[in-house]
């Protein structure tokens, strides 16, 4: 990966343009070698090693016991609550974000709204992790400003209603802070792709707004909506920092369980830890395959 190697690889591949009759392929491939070596070393192989480890005993023998142990109730519960939080924050973020993006793109608002929303979304979608947890503690924690305002101005004791920031609902609410703007960022270009003429053509042929969305708008947007929601799901599913900073290890979600396992082998089985990671890959991987399949169906009509 040193610059020297790079220079070498590029120099050797410089010949083809001046000698076009030469088969360019083997040389051309050298240009992308650093990238694939990097991807193999720091993305593919480490992940693959975990997958292999999931099927091994501590002595390196093949076993399915680790996978079987994943069905332990506490592990299943961790996966389940992770899936619930991710799905809730993804769907919530997708729905709210889609409306917000639509309001800015096609809602007939003043022109300055859109760039402002995009800038703020760029900031908010990147304002995740530990600081976000602090912000929500300051807002909706027991001494948070909104908790205080609700109690003093409206006489509502938030925590007496059973609300807890360190819970499923609280974490979902926190995740929405970056999920909604992320959706706005992803969906806005897709909304721009909805051509004004489609709306007008449907109008002049007598279609109502509902019929337009039912038959044209949503079918056209569907792949983008689906893809964005899935990305939001994966985004929440893999999140560690926000949840850890917010709840410590009091909330049993799978990333925090895995974090604890990596730090201190709380499962007392290194290979069960690998299986835990494999389970996470399978879930995000499966949702991606589902997405690709659904998109294939939804996009029959396009290239």
């Amino acid at each position: 990966m040193t610059p020297g190697e790079r220079r070498l690889s590029l120099d050797t591949s410089a010949a083809p343009p001046s000698r076009p009759s030469l088969p360019a392929l083997p040389w051309a491939w050298i240009g992308v070698t650093p990238f694939f070596v990097f991807a193999a070393l720091f993305l593919v192989l480490p992940t693959a090693l975990l997958v292999v480890g999931a099927f091994q005993t501590a002595d390196g023998e093949f076993t399915l016991a680790n996978l079987r142990d994943l069905t332990h109730p506490s592990i299943v519960a961790a996966y389940w609550i992770s899936i619930q939080i991710s799905a809730a924050s993804a769907i919530g973020g997708a729905v709210i974000g889609a409306f917000l993006a639509y309001a800015a793109v096609g809602g007939g608002l003043p022109a300055w709204i859109r760039p402002t929303l995009m800038t703020f979304s760029g900031v908010a979608s990147n304002f995740a992790g530990v600081p976000l947890a602090f912000a929500f503690l300051a807002t909706l924690g027991r001494t948070g400003l909104v908790t205080w305002a609700l109690a003093n101005w409206f006489g509502v004791n938030l925590y007496a209603t059973g609300f807890n920031l360190l819970s499923f609902f609280g974490l979902t609410l926190t995740y929405l802070y970056f999920q909604i703007p992320l959706m706005v960022l992803i969906l806005t270009p897709a909304l721009d792709g909805l051509r004004k003429e489609w709306r007008e053509a449907s109008q002049i042929l007598g279609a109502s707004t509902f019929q337009y969305w039912r038959w044209i708008g949503l079918p056209v947007l569907w792949p983008s909506l689906l893809g964005a929601t899935l990305l939001l799901f994966a985004n929440a599913f893999g999140a560690v920092a926000t949840a850890y900073a917010l709840t410590g290890s009091s909330l049993n979600i799978v990333t925090i369980l895995l974090y604890a396992q990596i730090r201190g082998d709380v499962l007392h089985n290194q290979n069960l830890g690998y299986a835990l990671a494999l389970g996470m890959i399978l879930i995000t991987g499966f949702s991606n395959v589902a997405y690709i399949w659904l998109r294939g169906r939804a996009e029959r009509w396009s290239r």
């Binding site: 051509r195 003429e197 489609w198 007008e200 053509a201 449907s202 109008q203 002049i204 042929l205 007598g206 279609a207 038959w215 044209i216 079918p219 056209v220 009509w301 396009s302």
Partner: peptide, 19 residues
């Protein structure tokens, strides 16, 4: 528009791509 009983053809076709 729908109440005017007019038909329209647009510059860039504007066919519904999903149909």
């Amino acid at each position: 528009p729908a109440g005017r009983d007019v038909g329209m053809v647009f510059q860039a076709y504007a066919l519904f791509p999903n149909m």
